[in-house]
């Protein structure tokens, strides 16, 4: 199963359950049409997002990563998004040093009521990633990857 070749890019979203995931739901309920590239991972809080999840995605072949949490002051857990803001900003600064275009990663705040805003965020970010095109993939270790695939059934 591959991405719709040439049409879609691989965009991973990490959304907090209380605000942004709800905002994405609200956008759905409002039938606010959006590009289909984004796949959303639901987490309880933006504070749960280890910046390394984003790196994992980017190094594993994601063309873009989008994080969204509750607006500052609105965090369901009071403080999670404040920590997230610092950590994500620092991560964004590291990307160019790794040779990754920092525009491949954005973080923002969308509340559960902001369906339209969510649509705008997804539209804008998807467009931004499409402008950058597919990300360069790092080489896997081919022979070991193949071995790992063969061993997969034995793991259970």
């Amino acid at each position: 199963m591959s991405v719709l070749e040439g049409k879609e890019l691989r965009i991973v979203g990490f959304l907090c359950n209380w605000c942004s995931y709800g905002g994405a739901d609200t956008a759905g309920v409002g039938r606010f049409s959006q590009p289909t590239d984004l796949r959303i991972v639901r987490v309880p809080c933006s504070g749960r997002i280890n910046p390394l999840f984003i790196m994992k995605a980017l190094l594993s072949g994601a063309d873009g990563v989008l994080v969204s949490g509750c607006h500052p002051r609105d965090c369901h857990y009071a403080e999670g998004n404040y920590y997230a803001r610092r950590r994500l900003e620092v991560l964004k600064g590291l990307l160019p040093t790794l040779g990754i275009d920092p525009r491949r990663f954005e973080y923002t705040w969308v509340s559960a009521s902001e369906g339209q805003r969510w649509q705008h965020v997804v539209d804008t970010f998807t467009q931004q990633v499409h402008t950058l095109g597919p990300a360069k993939r790092l080489p896997d270790a081919p022979e070991l990857a193949a071995l790992a695939a063969r061993l997969e059934p034995l793991r259970n």
Binding site: P139, A141, L144
Partner: peptide
């Protein structure tokens, strides 16, 4: 795995 990806990660 001995991959650049894992080592860079």
């Amino acid at each position: 795995a001995d991959s650049v990806k894992d080592k860079l990660f």
